[in-house]
Design a protein around this nucleic acid. Structure first.
Lengths: 134, 134
DNA sequence: AGCTTACACGTACACGCGTACGTCATGCAA
DNA sequence: TTGCATGACGTACGCGTGTACGTGTAAGCT
């Protein structure tokens, strides 16, 4: 578990783009981000540089163009961030967050079905582990 | 929905204490926090000052002691933070986060029961709304 | 060959945050 | 009544972050 400095708010957006489009030049990443918000080319460049030095990205020169690629999988970064929030806001317990989410946001039929299916699956997995114990 | 500057990482911890113990002096809050981590009295004082100017706290002098109390309910702040994270990491969709939480952390029997109960309840609520539609 | 464009890279700068010191006033003890 | 303790409040400082400019250089166009 690499001990990385955290990604800042906006760096995270850059990371999301890199995950989405894969290894890419600054320009490509910038173009992608520009669709979502006004942001300067060199600002993106700075983000990428910093993210590389933080260990989140790799880069190499292809000709005179620098290509950045991700060193971290989305799942890892998401987990780190979610854990952080769960610790901070819910004292490390994640069920209250689950509860908050579905109570606060509300669920339609579709989501209920999804949840139902999910716990169905988890229960059978659980049972398999369970039979070993008893 | 007051447009407040966000609470920083550590300010959040202070907020949690204020929510927990209610209106309190700097010293009381500092003592509470000290149990969790080494932190200077005046640092807490600075946090409280800044949090008041951000609109999260009220304060008044009781004699020569300043008493801080919360202007915001935990639910509100939690919601803001969770929304922020859901936007940033999951593009605004909260179900992927629910999924992430229970898949990543795993659930024991107890939690499955809790979930089951929760969606049971939601379903009946849903149904009541549903009958109006059809 | 000279000019323009595109890009890398160093540098900058203001603001927020985490942390704390120093000063001044006030209340209590001797 | 003269200290000492306690607390408020102003101030500071370094680091991270959001943002971008300026300079140098290489590639392509004329």
């Amino acid at each position: 578990m690499a001990e990385r400095p955290v990604l800042s708010k906006w760096e995270m957006d850059v990371a999301r783009v890199v995950w989405e489009i894969g290894p890419a030049s600054v320009r490509e990443i910038h173009e992608h981000l520009s669709k979502q918000r006004q942001i300067d080319f060199t600002t993106v460049q700075t983000y990428l540089r910093r993210m590389e030095s933080k260990g989140y990205l790799n880069s190499s020169l292809k000709g005179r163009i620098r290509i950045y690629s991700s060193r971290t999988r989305p799942g890892t970064v998401i987990r780190e961030n979610v854990n952080e929030l769960v610790d901070r806001l819910f004292g490390g317990e994640y069920m209250p967050l689950v509860r908050h989410l579905i109570e606060d946001r509300g669920v339609d039929r579709e989501k209920i079905a999804e949840l139902r299916e999910l716990i169905e699956r988890l229960e059978t997995e659980q049972q398999q582990k369970g039979t070993a114990d008893e």
